[in-house]
């Protein structure tokens, strides 16, 4: 994750700025990974955040299903938009990678055991 997210402070335009109405005015959203790396997105208020999730997953080279996006501590649903979540300019989305656990054995120990 850290390898791919090394390029911090980058901005991606998800959608061209064609309308300047209140609802569709773009906002800047900061996506912060668990390692603290930041990626900035400019996104319309009524664009589904699933698109941002897909763009971020592509950027960091991960499967979108293996990444958890959280806003204010709660998981973001695919249908959510900045408008529905009351997001403001420069708000932060936290990213957590999928974690699985079963034992604390190192891979060397595990291979010996099996």
């Amino acid at each position: 994750m850290a390898d791919n997210e090394g390029q911090s402070q980058q901005t991606q335009d998800i959608k061209p700025q064609d309308e300047q109405s209140q609802d569709t005015a773009p906002i800047n959203v900061k996506v912060v990974s668990s390692t603290g790396d930041e990626v900035f997105f400019k996104i319309k208020r009524n664009t589904k955040l699933s698109k941002l999730q897909g763009a971020y997953a592509t950027k960091v080279g991960k499967d979108v299903a293996s990444i958890r996006f959280l806003y204010d501590g709660a998981r973001i649903n695919d249908d959510d938009t900045p408008q529905s979540l009351d997001m403001e300019d420069n708000d932060t989305i936290d990213v957590m990678v999928e974690q699985v656990g079963g034992s604390a054995m190192s891979s060397y120990q595990y291979s010996r055991k099996s």
Binding site: R68, A74, I76, N77, D79, M96, E98, G101, G102
Partner: peptide
Amino acid sequence: AIGGGTGPEALLPLLSDAEWLDDDII
């Protein structure tokens, strides 16, 4: 209860002998 569009199949690791549990379940 999990959110993020995750389906109930997220609980499937529990109905097996040796599947590791992931962060969703925890």
